[in-house]
Design a protein around this nucleic acid. Structure first.
Length: 735
RNA sequence: GGAUCCCUAGCUCAGUUGGUAGAGCGCUUCGUUUACACCGAAGAUGUCAGAGGUUCGAGUCCUCUGGGAUCCACCA
């Protein structure tokens, strides 16, 4: 009794083939069938070699962009290895994308006339959770549309409780090992969004601002920020600057807008004697360089700007003014007191802006959690140097080393709600921090007081992402098939089986943000590298070669192209003619060409199908079988050609040369197999030549399947009359 | 300021370890009622950014110059 599924197939097989290939009739129905049959699970090849890729988790809350479509490379690898008989795991996931998501959510609140300050922490978190759950299916459906053979039964979310538990554990371990520590550091603080940003999240803009030459007693210095003068704790000059040698180490008396004061003069290499007057005021609490200078010279920190963006009590009568207002007021006052020598109105410099709201970033001192990076970076450098991890293309190793060799400690605290809350509690009695693996501690680990307050911050999203390869595998299981000797089914963790994973494939733009951090944290927590190979693809730009971005308004939705050209054509176009790691401009003519290629492929199938109807039937044969039955010289030649192609294509995929594989498939199938072989066979077709033609075609479909999964599946089933899927058929043999 | 990548046919891009240039689209001419006009055959098109060097030989390796892109650091 055929199942409903098989009946569908049977009808499909009996239907005459359309003259023109219509992807819309084919693609949607096929994916569901694969999924239903469980073909995406590594368990389809329980005894195969282990091969695994963890999908870089897309933002759960946002639709896919073209960068995600490039994950087709992972699907090619996974489908290829699955057909080779490997137990191939491709594990999907979704990222909570901390600040990004909270920002989008707050925009929506804003449009409803509300703000995050109208809700308490728990309510806000719950609201964002529901917001994300509502949008989450969109991204997953799009991955399906692209034909990605992900094992959905192992889907993970970065905020799943079992993932969070692992993140806590890692943090606790870092704390116990004194890698995670608390320190006051200047952060890029946006007083508008009320949060700090990593250096990577700050954008810079060139602006023309006044440069004020201010008198400090006997000295004059140039500054763009006179309002921070209340926080000055020293003046600095270059140690080799003869003009100022006599002042170094002295305290000088200065007139200020508030009162007379004394300030000391120090010498530091950081000062450029050719800029301005060669004298710099040092404000450790409000400037990154000054902070460093302050640490070197043990200067006090004096914060004069608050987190609300207003001057605080140290600014005397200027307290309460916003920075911009204060600057104006201070300058006016100084002019009155004749403390300004001159103003250069045409000074051009770069200022830091919030990448979300474009407001000026204020460097402010804050207590934060940091991770000490040098020891972790050292191991990560070694892992690549010694070849334990290989980066493809190799040229990206330079970027990797450059980043790790100059690494700074990692600030992992974020002042957002949408994320994993840091499991650290401060004692209100003794100010000691108690860190746990999640649960609220009973009392302070030092003074045993019960007055504990949890840090309100959450982890930087990249902190949880850096643990993704092992965290996902530790929380999923591999189902072992019953064997002859042991009929019971059993499970072991995916971690035991698949870690380290085989390949991490992602865009080169997040090599340092993510890949390097995964290597460091993976090595630290598990003692093993998280993956053996890093494969990096380039960016997909708009048709004019410009980076797609919302602000430019040139973002193209990959799903629209899938509708228009078919997922197979989009997939093929993304790898064809684009060497790994290079950027590409989206090309409509290429997409069109690849759509025509799928039509060509379809019509080869149609030709074969029409000859089957005339009475000749397909049977499963190997290349060796074909060699035995081949009598005609041309048949023999084409059998050998196809055999050679199998080796070539396999080789290209093994070397991550997907473009060459795709180009060769295109060229060989169209301008070899179709233009010459079919034209030749056409006039002399008999049972043997039909078998040879058909078998070679099936082999070509298999070679093409990792690239164009849908159409090859449809044709495979039509031609062979099999209900089995091409995706679990075996890769053709070659030397 | 530091770094990386790119500059190859009109356009978008390939070109494996150095052996006198390739694809797609476009262009020209011709052909085809039966696998496909979303087709086939034939053809034109390049001082491989520029200059120097290494080599018997360089698009490919080295140096410099010019142009573009990206990343990092950010100078009061």
């Amino acid at each position: 009794m055929p199942t409903r599924l098989n009946l569908d197939l049977w009808y499909a097989r009996m239907a005459p083939m359309d003259k023109v290939y219509d992807h819309k009739k084919i693609e949607d129905k096929i994916y569901g069938r694969w999924e239903e049959k469980g073909y995406f699970k590594p368990e389809v090849n329980p005894d195969g070699a282990l091969y695994s890729i963890i999908l870089p988790p897309p933002n759960a809350n946002a639709p896919l962009h073209f960068g995600h479509a490039m994950y087709v490379i992972e699907d090619i690898l996974i489908r290829y290895h699955r057909m080779l008989g490997d137990a191939a795991l491709w594990l999907p996931g979704a990222d909570h994308a901390g600040f990004e998501t909270q920002f989008v959510f707050e925009k929506q609140l804003q449009s409803e006339g509300k703000s995050r300050f109208d809700y308490n922490r728990e309510t806000l978190y719950q609201m964002i959770w529901e917001f994300v759950q509502k949008n989450r299916g969109g991204m997953e459906g799009q991955l399906r549309k692209l034909g990605f053979s992900l094992d959905w039964s192992r889907m993970k979310f970065t905020l799943d409780p079992d993932i969070i538990a692992i993140v806590y554990k890692t943090f606790k371990k870092m704390y116990d090992d004194q890698l995670a520590y608390r320190a006051e550091r200047l952060v890029n603080y946006c007083t508008f969004d009320g949060t700090s940003f990593s250096d990577l999240e700050v954008i810079y803009e060139e602006r023309k601002d006044p440069l004020y030459y201010i008198k400090y007693g006997p000295l004059t210095l140039a500054t763009t920020r006179p309002e921070t003068k209340f926080g000055d704790t020293a003046l600095a000059v270059n140690p080799d600057d003869a003009r100022y040698k006599k002042y170094v180490g002295e305290e000088i008396e200065i007139e200020t807008v508030l009162a007379k004061a004394r300030i000391k003069v120090i010498a530091d290499e950081y000062v450029d004697p050719t800029f301005g007057t060669g004298v710099v005021k040092i404000t450790p609490a409000h400037d990154f360089n000054d902070f460093e200078v302050g640490k070197r010279h043990d200067l006090p920190m004096k914060q004069v700007i608050g987190f609300d963006g207003k001057m605080n009590e140290h600014a005397g009568k200027f307290a309460g003014l916003y920075v911009k207002q204060a600057r104006k007021a201070v300058v006016e006052e100084m002019q009155k007191k004749d403390l300004i020598e001159k103003i250069d109105e045409n000074y051009i410099h770069r200022i830091a802006l919030c990448y979300k709201c474009k407001n000026v970033i204020e460097p402010l001192p804050m207590e934060q959690w940091f991770v000490k990076m040098e020891p972790l970076a050292k191991e990560a450098i070694d892992a690549v140097r010694t070849g334990k991890i290989k980066i493809h293309p190799k040229t990206f190793e330079k970027l990797y080393f450059q980043f790790l060799e100059n690494i700074r400690d990692w600030n992992i605290s974020r002042q957002v709600v949408w994320g994993i809350r840091i499991p650290a509690w401060m004692c209100e009695k003794c100010a000691n921090w108690t860190v746990t693996e999640g649960p609220t501690p009973e009392n302070c680990s030092k003074c045993k007081s019960k007055d504990l307050v949890q840090d309100s911050d959450t982890f930087d999203t990249w902190f949880s992402s850096s643990q993704w390869p092992f965290a996902t595998l530790m929380t999923t299981d591999y189902r072992l098939q019953p064997t002859a000797v042991d009929s019971r089914r059993s499970t072991i963790s995916d971690f035991e089986r698949f870690y380290p994973t085989t390949v991490m494939e992602t865009g080169y733009d997040i090599l340092r943000w993510w890949v390097a951090r995964m290597i460091m944290v993976g090595l630290y927590v598990t003692g093993k590298q998280p993956f053996d190979n890093v494969v990096l693809h380039g960016l997909v730009n708009d048709p004019y070669g410009k980076k797609m971005s919302k602000s430019r308004g040139n973002v193209i939705n990959p799903m629209e192209l899938v509708d228009q050209y078919g997922a197979d054509a989009v997939r093929f176009a993304l790898v064809y003619g684009n060497a790994l790691g290079n950027d590409q401009a989206l090309s409509y003519s290429k997409l069109e060409a690849m759509r025509k290629f799928s039509n060509k492929l379809w019509n080869i199938g149609r030709f074969i199908e029409m000859n089957k109807v005339s009475g000749i039937k397909y049977q499963v044969l190997s290349i060796e079988d074909l060699k035995k039955i081949a009598k005609h010289g041309n048949d023999k030649i084409w059998i050998e050609k196809v055999e050679k192609w199998v080796g070539q294509i396999s080789d290209y995929i093994d070397k991550y040369q997907f473009n060459l594989a795709a180009e060769n498939l295109y060229e060989n199938i169209w301008h070899g197999f179709a233009d010459f072989y079919i034209e030749d066979v056409k006039s002399r077709i008999d049972e043997d030549s039909y078998l040879i033609l058909t078998t070679l075609y099936i082999i070509l479909l298999k070679l093409l399947h990792p690239f164009m999964p849908f159409i090859t599946e449809e044709l495979y089933q039509k031609i062979t009359g099999e209900c089995d899927s091409i995706m679990i058929s075996s890769w053709p043999k070659h030397d």
